[in-house]
Amino acid sequence: MSTGVHPSTFLYARATSSNGTSVLESFAEEIQCYSLPYGLLGFISHVLTYYTIVCLWFGRKPLWPFSRVSFSRFDLALGGFGLLISTLLSIVTIVRCKDTWQLLVIAVWKMSMSLLNGLTAVHVAILFTLRKMKLRKAAKKRRREGSDESNETAVSGVKLEEAAEAESGKGRHKKEKSTETTTGSHKKEKSTDSKTGKHTKERSTKSKAADEEAPVVPKDKDEPAISVKVDPLKVVAWWIVLYIPGMFAGITGLMALVVEAQGHGGIRGLTAGFYAIVGAGTLFTILGIVYRLRKDQGELGRPEKAKRIILGAIVWVVGSFSILAVFYSDWALGMMTNNITGLPSSDAAAVYWTYWVAKRLPMFSL
């Protein structure tokens, strides 16, 4: 049963030798097990994948990169589902292509990219989740401490009022004793009234203080919105370590197919262009390193800075190569099968488009 290419797919007859033609015809049969995107659709898929990864690395919304990603459980679910579905379908392709090692390692390559895409989305969502939880906890703690301080202030104020009232009562009592024209009964009545008023006011003040002692903690629904800003690049970008081995394995299998199909003129031209771009980029990078190190004579005496420059150049070369290699694989496979658009056959459409859509899910991170 055909599962990998369009029914109208046939090989170019432009191979210059009968051996080259037979190799391509054999490959057309073998690639039927391969149900992952390639050709034009694969190229578009990989452009969107790289774009999504870069946006998430910098904490930006892929659909609106001018705005930062804000946490929602929806983002975590998108990343998780995309990771699970794309990885499972990649494994299905790997198992089905187990008899053709070149296609098997290419499928491993594409699975490593799916892992990079999905894990990046999930990791960014988790980072924002943890950061928001930390900020919310700190805000609650500040409100609780502020409530305790206000209660202590209220109690202290009550005590000061009681002391002032007591002092005032003593003064009035002394004044009453020193007055000779006041009768004893009048003194007693006034003293009783003073004490009664004092106790009444004291009870009222204490009741008010007791009402204020209970701390008031706002409910979650009344909490203000918490703005979270996270720079995920330094943490999340390390997932690329999972991608690099798969990329080198896949490019090895792809080049093995290219060597076998060297009689195809279009593939020869595409390969020459690929190597020319990679070679020119590497050469300019090396020249840039030399210029940077010699710009200031003192740079050569500072090994730490020289190491950073060289390491940055290596990262740049490997990163550029990995991006160009994916694009090269899309067009090379499309040319080998004369299916430059990469449209799947009807019996492979469900798996193909499910995988294609699953890799797009992280783009909708909010």
Results as ranks from 00 to 15, higher is better:
203 R>A: 06
196 T>G: 08
116 L>Y: 14
233 L>A: 03
103 L>N: 03
90 S>Q: 10
26 S>Y: 01
170 K>F: 02
336 M>I: 04
144 R>V: 10
317 V>F: 09
80 G>F: 04
191 S>I: 02
105 V>M: 07
335 M>H: 09
29 E>H: 02
362 P>V: 10
71 F>H: 12
167 E>S: 12
325 A>N: 03
120 T>M: 00
237 A>E: 15
154 A>T: 10
110 K>S: 01
103 L>K: 06
58 F>N: 11
306 A>W: 06
73 R>D: 07
239 W>D: 02
26 S>F: 00
13 A>N: 14
217 V>W: 15
250 G>M: 04
156 S>Q: 14
319 G>D: 06
275 Y>A: 02
232 P>M: 02
347 D>E: 11
151 N>V: 15
125 A>R: 05
96 R>F: 09
254 L>Q: 05
15 A>T: 00
206 K>V: 06
14 R>V: 07
306 A>M: 09
25 E>D: 05
324 L>R: 05
220 D>R: 10
65 P>Q: 09
57 W>F: 03
247 M>S: 05
112 S>Y: 02
343 L>T: 09
23 V>M: 01
105 V>I: 13
64 W>S: 15
321 F>P: 01
155 V>E: 14
76 L>C: 08
147 S>I: 07
295 K>W: 15
348 A>T: 12
82 G>Y: 13
362 P>I: 11
216 V>S: 15
300 L>Q: 08
295 K>N: 15
264 H>Y: 00
261 A>Q: 01
357 V>S: 03
77 A>V: 14
45 S>G: 03
28 A>P: 02
265 G>F: 07
227 S>I: 11
206 K>T: 08
